[in-house]
């Protein structure tokens, strides 16, 4: 560490102190742990990746290293921008055409066609997010009330337990063919609000998200402090009021644990479900790229992999923020 040797000037002495503080800060624990070590980890990973990628040659070309993946990412971004331009241009032309038609004859019937271009990478990300949100919602609308009932009544739990234990380990993907058949048979409308593939994927995700939330809710409700239950009895709270005001708030920390687990596994299952159900999301993107087999494919798949990972990470962080807000259990460490 270089020491500044200006002694007399007070301004310089203050600068000296700040400089020393900055240098001290560089060696401080929070900086090292918070920034330096993770950055180091990422750097080492990138180097190992680049090194090993160069040594792997597949039938589709060399395994993509960080540089190629970055190129592909930029390419996908550019594709998205181009698609948006094309879409805007299409709608503009349609507007103009219709305006001319109306100008000639105000009574004319105008056609309004929807732009049917390719879904871009970003569109697919949005589709995936919507699908996982739908599946997550369906799962929790079922799992949370059911979990509360199971937690409150040991009898109901004992009755349901065999079913839960048997179906919990089943991969939701094994359900997918059955789900597809059922949805084909029952979801028959002329102009459906949701695509069948969307419904199939959402239901498959729901079947996966169901179990962690259900079990954690049950445990949370069953495990609330007995004293709180006694307080509720002394106050003679009616059953529904008891559930609403005592049971649910007391179980919220465990419920949120379940929700976080659910979302994490749901996101993982989504990608696979989309591949099989052909829902136009990230899963389909990966599958299409693989089937496509161009020289860019591996790179683009890698971009998808990283995107999936980053989005999963962000979803979890989002749940963590919500959990921290909602959870009153200050003693629990949330990370």
């Amino acid at each position: 560490m270089k020491r500044q040797e200006i002694m007399t000037d007070t301004a310089a002495i203050q600068h000296d102190d700040r400089f020393r503080q900055m240098l001290a800060g560089l060696g401080s624990k929070s900086f090292v742990e918070g920034l330096l070590l993770p950055a180091l980890g990422i750097l080492v990973f990138l180097m190992v990746w680049q090194f090993s990628a160069q040594r792997i040659n597949t039938s589709l070309g060399q395994f993509p290293g960080p540089a190629q993946v970055w190129e592909q990412a930029k390419g996908l971004g550019a594709e998205h921008a181009r698609e948006r331009e094309k879409e805007a241009a299409f709608y503009q032309r349609q507007e103009d055409r219709n305006a001319i038609k109306l100008a000639k004859d105000p009574q004319a019937t105008i056609k309004w066609r929807k732009y049917t271009g390719k879904a871009t990478f970003l569109d697919q990300i949005v589709t995936s997010l919507l699908t996982v949100a739908a599946g997550f919602l369906i799962a929790n609308i079922i799992a949370i009330p059911l979990g509360i009932v199971c937690g409150l009544s040991a009898g109901v739990y004992k009755a349901m337990n065999p079913i839960i234990q048997i179906f919990k380990p089943v991969s939701p993907l094994a359900w997918l063919p059955l789900v597809t058949m059922v949805v084909s048979a029952t979801y028959t409308s002329e102009d459906p609000l949701f695509d069948k593939s969307f419904v199939n994927s959402a239901i498959t995700v729901a079947l996966c998200c169901l179990w962690p939330t259900l079990i954690n809710t049950t445990v949370g409700v069953a495990g609330i402090d007995k004293d709180l239950v006694n307080v509720s009895k002394v106050m003679a709270l009616r059953p529904m009021v008891h559930v609403r005001k005592i049971v649910v708030p007391a179980a919220i920390p465990m419920i949120f644990t379940g929700l976080r687990l659910s979302l994490a596994t749901g996101w993982m299952v989504l990608i696979a479900a989309e591949m099989l159900a052909q829902n136009p999301g990230l899963g389909k993107f990966v599958w299409d790229e693989f089937q496509n087999g161009s020289s860019n494919s591996l790179g683009r798949i890698m971009v998808a992999v990283l995107a999936i990972g980053l989005i999963g990470f962000m979803l979890d962080k989002l749940m963590l923020i919500v959990q921290k807000r909602a959870s009153w259990d200050k003693s629990a460490v949330l990370r």
């Binding site: 402090d225 004293d227 006694n230 307080v231 002394v234 106050m235 003679a236 708030p249 919220i252 009153w328």
Partner: peptide, 17 residues
């Protein structure tokens, strides 16, 4: 149980939230 016989427990039993 009922509020006419209110109980003060050894562990305060306040609702933490």
């Amino acid at each position: 149980p009922g509020p006419d016989r209110a109980v003060v427990f050894q562990n305060h039993s306040l609702m933490p939230w």
